[in-house]
Nucleic acid binder design. Structure first.
Length: 645
DNA sequence: CCCCCTTTGAAGAGA
DNA sequence: TCTCTTCAAAGGGGG
């Protein structure tokens, strides 16, 4: 297998990988266009926050009208250009139109990657998780396709065919034809129902088809209990506006944020109110560090007994509504005693930021669609930043040597397109920023004296102490940075590349006897030694323990790996998605391109069908490469979370 | 039982 | 002012 040549600025191979490893580091910012895009991104986000703050009192105005487009347009244009260019680079101009109009952060996976099919696990080494996700009628046509995908963010029965489960025990003859058949499964599209604030109204409409009553008449159904829930009262402030007499009848409007639990973010207590946090505010007022007089006056909800969820006590977990009722009947004396005991343990949590709010809402949906339960992996799907520049690497991932999560292209593209925070439109994100702002406001009202520093260091206290102990023990031997310098970052261990603690330095107390790490992730870095890349049993054993424990990255360097147990390597990964263009052009890649072109023709891909093509191309790549390498079965549409023995 | 993982964003700490 | 660190949620997994 030819190695990627290490030189050449335009070579998207190893060199780019090297660059990418400096992500979040110092040198990635040297990519000027990227840094400008980053700045734009920051500006956009800050503008979202600012707009959220400045527009807090004007709820009737449309979000789109209030948002000055130039900034966003500039950013999007830049990003789009970057995407287009990257796509052209990687597929020779197959992408004739902007990949994702309006969604610049979505990277089209490297469908030409030769490593996709080879990077699949042996079927015997995997457990195939059932994938349940809406089958989208992804037809060519950017916006429509995107809308269909966006609909999938709030899957409705109209989108979900069955609970359709794909199981691919590694033997499925996944072909482009089949793929398209799958995507041709008739689904009901209702693009007109796609509200620009889809994620915010999913609570009210996600479970309903267009044939259902209009939103204002709809009642939501708890996805788990099936109990209908009334929609958000439109003119009731979603934050703590309920009077004592109504709280028992109207679910907390923020309950949509946690549809999974059916519990509001800031729960309602006493009198049967549901709340995830056990401590009622009235109780908290006495329990809190803050005296009762600090609690906001009567007009605030908390004075009615509605607690703030940020108040938690270490000893008490979430209580159900019936437990609230039962607690009323239980001995109040014991409660009082407990409360007194808790007084010293009250912990007021930080208000959730926009992304946390979004994640809280979407996590359940991701789980529902792919049965993936590990939050770390879900969070990656939800929040992984897709760089406009495909050459840039992203962060290490949750992929562990002992737990391989295999995403097929289709699955991954779907998940990313559907749930990724960065795939949200500006307006959609703005809503979460707005929510977060109100969260903070309410938090400030409820806990005027609270400061984030109150919680600062509580969690990491032990960790810091441990780190301090470590730093004291070690007499500052040279770390990778000092040892190899910036010019030889390929020799750095993974943590050093990420500006983390040098694992060699720790484990070897200054010695760097171990082969250069692969970014702590076996896949994430251009391996200086191919044998160190693949976690084959032998190589794994030879690897330092600390390195074994390093999480595998989604981004791998398959070009260096096909000779080394490619079946052990992950299939399409998030990293590949975003860095796909960075993959070196191998002969296999070229052949993929050819196949893709033919596949595109055969699938009658229309110009501008970026989403459709992006969805189809992986299959094409899978199919083609499978035909080329029948022994290397492509990783099918499944999530794999089984340890490799 | 506690901590880690993983994400973004907010905010504190420190240089 | 800038950079770095911590904490919010979540649940599986490991020690």
């Amino acid at each position: 297998m030819p190695q990627l040549n290490g030189g050449g600025g335009d070579d998207l191979g190893a060199n780019d990988e090297m660059i990418s490893f400096k992500d979040e580091g110092e040198q990635e910012e040297k990519i000027s266009e990227n840094s400008s895009a980053e700045r734009d991104l920051a500006d956009v986000k800050s503008s979202l926050v600012n707009e959220s703050e400045t527009n807090q009192n004007s709820s009737s105005d449309s979000e789109a009208e209030r948002r000055p487009p130039p900034r966003s347009e500039t950013f999007r244009d830049k990003t789009r250009e970057s995407l287009e260019e990257a796509a052209k680079r990687q597929d020779g101009g197959l992408f004739k139109s902007p990949p994702y109009p309006g969604y610049p952060f979505i990277m089209i996976p490297d469908l030409t990657s030769p490593y996709l099919p080879n990077g699949s696990l042996s079927p015997t080494a995997r457990t195939y998780l059932q994938m349940k996700w809406p089958l989208l009628d992804v037809q060519p046509g950017g916006l429509q396709s995107r809308q269909a995908l966006k609909d999938a963010r709030s899957p409705s029965p109209a989108h979900i065919v069955g609970p359709f489960c794909w199981e691919f025990p590694g033997q499925s003859d996944l072909s482009l034809h089949q793929f398209h058949l799958s995507n041709k499964v008739p689904v009901v599209q209702h693009p007109h129902h796609v509200h620009p604030l889809t994620p915010l109204i999913t609570y009210s409409n996600e479970h309903f088809t267009p044939g259902n009553p209009p939103p204002h008449l709809q009642t939501d159904v708890d996805p788990k209990t099936g109990i209908p829930r009334p929609p958000h009262p439109p003119d009731i402030s979603p934050y703590y506006p309920l009077s004592p007499g109504t709280v028992g009848q109207i679910p907390h409007p923020l309950g949509w944020l946690v549809p999974q639990q059916g519990q509001p973010v800031y729960p309602i207590t006493t009198g049967g109110f549901r709340h995830p946090y056990p401590t009622a505010l009235t109780v908290n007022a006495s329990m809190s560090r803050f005296p009762p007089h600090m609690v906001p006056p009567h007009h605030s909800l908390h004075t009615t007994g509605i607690p703030h969820p940020a108040i938690v006590t270490p000893n008490v977990k979430q209580e159900s509504s019936h437990s609230d009722i039962s607690s009323l009947n239980s001995s109040k004396q014991s409660d009082a005693k407990k409360e007194e005991e808790k007084k010293k343990q009250v912990h007021i949590k930080k208000p959730l930021n926009a992304f946390m709010l979004y994640m809280k809402e979407m996590r359940a949906k991701v789980v529902a669609e792919c049965t993936l339960k590990e939050s770390a992996a879900i969070n990656q799907i939800l929040g992984r930043r897709v760089s406009p520049d495909p050459r840039r690497r992203l962060r290490r991932t949750v992929w562990k040597p002992e737990s391989w999560y295999m995403f097929s292209w289709v699955t991954l593209v779907h998940l990313l397109l559907t749930f990724q925070w960065h795939a949200l439109s500006r307006e959609e994100q703005a809503k979460y920023y707005e929510l977060a702002r109100k969260e903070r406001q309410l938090h400030m009202q409820l806990y005027p004296g609270w400061s984030a520093r109150d919680n600062y260091g509580k969690r990491k206290k032990r960790k810091r102490e441990k780190q301090q102990a470590e730093s004291n023990d070690l007499s500052a031997p040279k770390k990778c940075r000092a040892r190899f310098g910036l010019d030889q970052q390929n020799n750095w261990c993974g943590p050093c590349r990420r500006k983390k603690k040098c694992i060699r330095y720790i484990q070897g107390e200054g010695s760097c006897a171990s082969p250069p790490s692969t970014d702590g992730s076996l896949l994430d870095s251009p391996p200086s030694s191919p044998s160190s890349v693949v976690p084959s049993p032998s190589s794994k054993e030879s690897k330092p323990q600390t390195e074994q424990m390093q999480p595998l990255s989604l981004t791998m360097k398959p070009a260096h790996q096909p000779l080394h147990h490619p079946h052990l390597l992950a299939g399409p990964s998030l990293g590949q998605l975003e860095n796909s263009a960075a993959a070196g052009k191998t002969p296999a890649a070229s052949s993929h391109n050819g196949a893709l072109e033919r596949a595109d023709v055969s699938s009658s891909r229309q110009p501008g069908s970026s989403v459709a093509s992006s969805m189809a191309r992986p299959s094409a790549a899978l199919c083609h490469s499978r035909s080329l390498h029948p022994s290397a079965a492509p990783q099918p549409l499944s999530l794999v979370t089984k340890s490799i023995e």
